[in-house]
């Protein structure tokens, strides 16, 4: 499964890297708006790539 890493900011910590798997995770949902947005970006990019691959095939 494709996966991405992204630095996600919190108020008290420095930005720390989070794994962003295409299928998502509870951890990303728990991160709230940022986690959902970043997951959607990775998921949409993955879906787009797949679609293009299918087209090319």
């Amino acid at each position: 499964m494709n996966e991405s890493k992204k630095n996600i900011r919190t108020n008290s910590d420095a930005a720390i890297p989070y794994d962003i798997p295409v299928e998502g995770s509870l951890g990303l949902l728990a991160l709230g708006a940022t986690g959902i947005k970043e997951w959607r970006k990775v998921r949409n990019a993955h879906n787009k790539r797949k679609l293009e691959e299918e087209k090319n095939d």
């Binding site: 919190t10 108020n11 008290s12 910590d13 509870l26 951890g27 949902l29 728990a30 991160l31 709230g32």
Partner: peptide, 16 residues
């Protein structure tokens, strides 16, 4: 456990 994960984020955003 999921509520605790969300709480972790909320506490960090709220700040000390």
């Amino acid at each position: 456990k999921f509520h605790d994960m969300m709480l972790d984020r909320q506490l960090k955003l709220a700040g000390p």
